[in-house]
Amino acid sequence: MKLAPPAIWILLFVSLNGCAKDRSLAPPPDSEQITVTVKVPKELKARTMQVMYRSATCKRVTHGASGQRIEVEGHHSIDVQLQRQGQSDLYQASLPKDGGGACKWHLANVIFGVVYADPTRFGANVIWGAGGGVVVIFDHNNSPMGGADTEVEGDLTIKKDYYPRIDEEFLGPYKKTISLVGEGSIYRSYEALNAQQVYFEPVLHSDFIVYSAGPKVKKKGNYTVFTYPDGSVVADGRGGPDFQKLQSIRLAAESKK
């Protein structure tokens, strides 16, 4: 169930093996707050933010390859909706770093980002694909998406370029998706141990769409075909569009204006 932020701290209960304490999240009134802000382009929307707290006090039990009992930090994830700030394009959520309670929860990581508000604007059967995601880690543990690609000191400001990708897949069930192409992987991942402010500004270049179509027959040498905004066609076996090529096409076009 997705809860609005004011209700989270009242209604959240965590079920963890081996923890006999009151498991509720109870941030102290003076807890340091971490504020996450996303500047959302008009064609996109802020996705629901996944927030994970961890506890070294209330551990959970797992088992190794030989069946041995292993105790690790307890954790629990909750969903938080970023709230629009007035009539602006800024969406925000404030999270207590100290989760409090008998389990002494601490904020471990958040996963958030942007998605297309209406994928069907690209066609009746078009669905959301991937991209536009951000992971921020506030402790020394990996997130559900793995470790961090970048470590930062202090507050974190992310401003990155993104391009629309319309993709058709023919092998297996047919599907057509709209995704966001950015530099690096689907999720940009940061470790920001001392951040109080996290700001994410995706810059969407809507006029520079890259199209891709997977092979219709599974055969050696049949690759996904990418058609770039300048009309060039590439099928070189890569799994995704060439971000630097997209940047070059856009910058060249803008320089001619």
Rank of each mutant, 00 (worst) to 15 (best):
V114P: 05
A124W: 04
H76G: 07
P119W: 10
T37W: 04
P144E: 02
N142R: 04
A130D: 14
L16Q: 05
C103R: 08
A56N: 13
D155K: 08
N141Q: 06
P29R: 11
I127N: 04
S55C: 02
H76A: 11
Q50C: 01
A117E: 14
H63L: 04
I137D: 00
Q85N: 10
T120E: 12
G129H: 11
Q92A: 13
A148H: 06
Y91R: 07
K21S: 03
S31G: 07
H63R: 13
Y162T: 11
R54T: 13
G99H: 08
G146M: 10
I78L: 02
D30W: 06
E43N: 12
Q87F: 14
C58P: 03
V114M: 08
A117K: 15
R84Q: 13
G100W: 08
T150Q: 12
V38R: 09
G154P: 02
D30F: 06
A117F: 01
F122W: 13
G146F: 08
S77G: 07
A108G: 04
V38H: 09
F138P: 00
I78E: 00
Q50W: 03
V40T: 08
L16G: 01
I127E: 12
N17Y: 03
Y162I: 14
G64Q: 10
Y163A: 07
L156S: 07
R60S: 14
D89W: 04
K21N: 07
V115I: 10
G100H: 07
L95S: 02
Q50E: 12
A46H: 14
T35N: 12
M145S: 09
D161I: 06
T120N: 10
V114H: 10
P119V: 12
T157M: 12
Q83H: 04
A65I: 14
D149V: 02
R121I: 12
K59S: 09
S24P: 00
